Simulated scan of single mutants.
Amino acid sequence: MKLITVKRETLIEKRFTPKMGELLTKVTYIKKQFLSIPFKTIHKYRETYYGEVKDCEACELAR
């Protein structure tokens, strides 16, 4: 049995960018888990309408 695993999870979230305004986008989280309990997010990225993959640092969560 592995103690530490890495899981990938995709969620649909509302994001806000200054150029496009509010948008719904797929955000993928890569998390480290210890005994199936997530304790650290390694990386998160989002996919644009055009199929590009961008880091989530460029946009912020919608209010």
Score class of each variant (00 low, 15 high):
1 M>R: 06
1 M>W: 02
1 M>F: 04
2 K>N: 02
2 K>A: 02
3 L>A: 12
3 L>F: 09
3 L>V: 11
3 L>Q: 14
4 I>S: 11
4 I>H: 10
4 I>W: 09
5 T>K: 04
5 T>W: 00
5 T>V: 01
5 T>C: 00
6 V>L: 07
6 V>E: 07
6 V>H: 04
7 K>A: 09
8 R>C: 11
9 E>N: 05
9 E>H: 05
10 T>E: 03
11 L>C: 08
11 L>R: 12
12 I>Y: 05
13 E>C: 11
13 E>N: 13
14 K>H: 03
16 F>R: 14
17 T>E: 11
17 T>H: 10
19 K>S: 09
20 M>F: 08
24 L>Q: 09
25 T>L: 11
25 T>N: 10
25 T>S: 13
26 K>C: 08
26 K>S: 15
27 V>T: 02
27 V>A: 00
27 V>P: 00
28 T>L: 00
28 T>I: 02
29 Y>P: 06
29 Y>Q: 10
30 I>L: 06
31 K>S: 13
31 K>W: 03
31 K>Q: 07
32 K>M: 03
33 Q>M: 09
33 Q>Y: 10
35 L>C: 06
36 S>L: 13
36 S>Y: 14
37 I>M: 10
38 P>E: 04
38 P>G: 05
39 F>L: 07
40 K>W: 04
40 K>F: 06
40 K>I: 00
40 K>E: 03
41 T>L: 04
41 T>D: 04
42 I>V: 08
42 I>M: 12
42 I>P: 09
42 I>Q: 12
42 I>C: 13
44 K>T: 06
45 Y>R: 13
45 Y>F: 10
46 R>A: 12
46 R>K: 09
47 E>N: 06
47 E>K: 13
47 E>R: 10
48 T>H: 09
48 T>M: 12
48 T>K: 13
49 Y>A: 09
49 Y>H: 07
50 Y>V: 13
50 Y>R: 14
51 G>V: 02
51 G>K: 00
52 E>Q: 15
52 E>N: 13
53 V>M: 03
54 K>Q: 05
54 K>S: 02
55 D>L: 02
55 D>W: 01
55 D>F: 02
57 E>P: 01
57 E>Q: 11
57 E>F: 15
57 E>M: 08
57 E>K: 09
57 E>Y: 12
59 C>D: 11
59 C>H: 14
59 C>I: 15
61 L>W: 07
61 L>P: 05
61 L>G: 08
62 A>T: 06
62 A>G: 06
62 A>S: 14
63 R>K: 15
63 R>Q: 14
